[in-house]
Nucleic acid binder design. Sequence first.
DNA 1: TTGGAAAGTCAACATGGCTGACATAAAATC
DNA 2: GATTTTATGTCAGCCATGTTGACTTTCCAA
Lengths: 169, 169
Amino acid sequence: MEAGNPGSHGGESLLFLTDEQLRKGIEAMFFAYRAFTADPDRILENYEYGRAHHRAIHFINRQPGLTVNTLLTMLGVTKQSLNRVLRTLVEDGLVEARVGRRDKRERNLFLTEKGAELERELSDAQRARMRAAYRAAGPAAVAGFRQVLEAMMDPDIRRHYQSMRETAS
Amino acid sequence: MEAGNPGSHGGESLLFLTDEQLRKGIEAMFFAYRAFTADPDRILENYEYGRAHHRAIHFINRQPGLTVNTLLTMLGVTKQSLNRVLRTLVEDGLVEARVGRRDKRERNLFLTEKGAELERELSDAQRARMRAAYRAAGPAAVAGFRQVLEAMMDPDIRRHYQSMRETAS
DNA sequence: TTGGAAAGTCAACATGGCTGACATAAAATC
DNA sequence: GATTTTATGTCAGCCATGTTGACTTTCCAA
């Protein structure tokens, strides 16, 4: 199935959809993602945290005060998985979980100063690689990169992604 | 560190390197990668295989006859990890490990017909998503996507990536 | 007041990373 | 020819992080 015919003439856009092009894209995703996580992973070895902690910290930093449920949706894991991670972060004083003002069942999550410090260390490393790649590829490539990644996301998540507040650190 | 100054005027390329841009890129990678692996993961649930098996099958299909060592380099895992996966694939008749002709210590890996079938099923799903994203983003975006991902890879791996034979299935 | 939602917890299990130790066969080197 | 190195395979055990299922507490809302 899917002939992947390189000689087809269905208009410009089809020229890029050969099996070979698609497979190269798949490999590029795999290799790039591995590099993308490698730097933070190295840093996390010095602490007693893993990649799951990094992800939680990232999103709490991006949307201070977000609820556990929202974080759950963004991470796409079960609450039991998340809770294991979140508990250690709260115990270690990197994350604060405040009882919701309007709805007291909710917990609003914030990074403490200590949490923000680790976030910075991890983020600096990850952004450095991203920045280098952006510089090497150039502005036009960066726009295309973002467009393809967005198109690849599941629609529900894409909405979250697009509406992410610009909090910066 | 890293002021990430949106108002800087260092030339066109620097305008794309604000912290916010970089963080959005980081999130895009995370969300897109999750979607990227979701379809094959769903298929693999029907078998007794996991993501690790998929990766091995992918590269054996791409470079038929590659050695265990080469596969190890591409996957970036230990031989013990790979062996656990490879053993079940050979036992189940999806992969054939032929003794090397020139160097009899080596094993050259090939997909059997059965292995090629599973490869096709997994690959079809993954390529379908990639194709949809490529179509939605357009040819220029695809080129940029590939450029940024390449720039993000570790140099050694990038060389492997670029020299990957065009075997297609 | 009752039902459901948000969060937390315990237990058990699977996958797939890892290290360390060791075995075998074959190539390469001295 | 003896020795060392390389490629592969294997066993055992550990760890991080995902899963399901069951159950509790708190609190909002109908």
